[in-house]
Amino acid sequence: MSNGSFPPTFRRPSGLLLAVAVLLVAGAAGWLAWSAFAGDGSGERGGRAPHASGEPAGGPGGESPDASPDPAGDRPGADPSGDAGDRSLRGKVVVIDPGHNPHNGEHAAKIARTVDVGTHKKECDTVGAATASGYSEAEYTLDVARRVRRLLEDRGAEVRLTQDGDRPYGPCVDERAEIGNRAHADAVVSVHADGSGTGNRGFHVIAPARVRAGKADTSAITGPSRTLADRLIDRFGRATGAAPANYLGGGSGLTVRDDLGGLNLSAVPKVFIECGNMRDSEDAALLTDARWRERAARGIADGVTDFLRD
């Protein structure tokens, strides 16, 4: 037409239609570029698993510097046994009793004095056992107790130690029991490592016998303490891969005693766990391994957790 208009069969595209067309073209180009980068959608990019450093997880060798043969993981700070954010033990009080004290040997006269444990009198405390290399039971128990505390606190429990390396010696066995009683603890675990003969291997848990003598009366706690012992035997064995002791308990991992002041004087559920034999070279190799101690702590924490959730 002489006035420059289009024939009636054609209409000039509106501005909106042009904008939509441009967006569609740009979107298609972007999708093609992303597809080339992303590969087949299996999680690989450019033929490599995504990792912040640009290397496969764990570095060029493919193994993390702190990798462990334990598939559940054993790095301090991690609690692989429970769901993230698990606070199921909120409101529960747990006392962990690290056996002996690294400084007991410096106070021989004080730890040798006797205290009343109901059935008889016995020493306030002892120096405990040690490996052939000189790693002491007291060092072991304090390290494991601190690891157990961390794991249980992560699950919401209030955790108290009978000593945290903050005492010159002890406490004496009667005071150790009293600490749990005063706390109205829902569970108490006394952590130890045995000092038996070479060739005697494995762990065992000691539950209180029924005792009523003097100021000792375990009649109300023998049942729940036995349940706590059973949970610990199960969980400790699973976490560490260790077998129940081959030298007592008939292979069950359980012994019952009436001569331990820490049990006789307890008014709350309490057990001892002997995590291994420090005087056997194979057990000593485990007890002195920090990664194995983390697994031991996890086994104890899991046993306590199972007991408190029952």
Rank of each mutant, 00 (worst) to 15 (best):
D166S: 14
L308F: 12
V191R: 06
R226M: 15
F10V: 15
T198A: 15
L151A: 08
E178P: 01
R238L: 12
N264F: 09
G41D: 13
F37W: 12
C124D: 08
L228M: 10
A301C: 08
I233P: 07
G54P: 07
T288C: 01
S252K: 13
I206F: 02
Y135W: 10
L152Q: 04
S14W: 05
T240G: 10
A284L: 07
A220L: 05
S5A: 13
L17T: 12
G253E: 08
R279V: 06
H103E: 13
D86Q: 12
R298Y: 01
Y247G: 03
E153W: 07
G197N: 14
D283F: 09
L142I: 04
A220T: 11
Q163S: 10
V268A: 05
H103V: 01
L151T: 05
R182L: 12
T305E: 12
R167D: 01
A243M: 03
P168H: 04
L142E: 12
V205Q: 04
V159P: 07
A19M: 11
G105W: 10
G249F: 09
G62F: 01
A296E: 13
W34R: 07
A301N: 07
E294P: 01
G303T: 08
D86Y: 11
R238W: 01
P56C: 00
L263P: 09
Y135F: 15
C124F: 04
R298V: 01
S64Y: 13
T141Q: 03
A130H: 14
H192M: 09
G299A: 11
L17S: 14
R11K: 14
V25N: 02
I96S: 09
T255L: 13
P269N: 11
W34L: 13
T305W: 08
D97T: 05
A290Y: 02
V268K: 13
G195K: 06
G61V: 01
V256M: 10
W34P: 00
P8S: 14
S68I: 03
E282Y: 07
V173H: 09
G165N: 08
G46W: 04
T288W: 00
A67L: 02
P168A: 15
H51D: 12
V159C: 08
S14T: 15
S136D: 05
V148C: 06
D302W: 02
S42D: 14
G199Y: 03
S88Y: 03
D83S: 14
D125W: 00
D302N: 13
D79F: 01
A78N: 10
R176E: 10
H103C: 04
G299Q: 11
R298G: 08
C124G: 03
T222D: 12
S64F: 14
E175L: 14
G134I: 06
D79N: 15
H204G: 05
A185K: 04
G250T: 02
A220M: 01
E282M: 04
G82H: 12
G61Y: 02
G253W: 04
A242R: 13
G39F: 01
D66E: 11
K110G: 00
H120W: 08
H103L: 15
I96R: 07
D116V: 07
D66Q: 11
R45C: 04
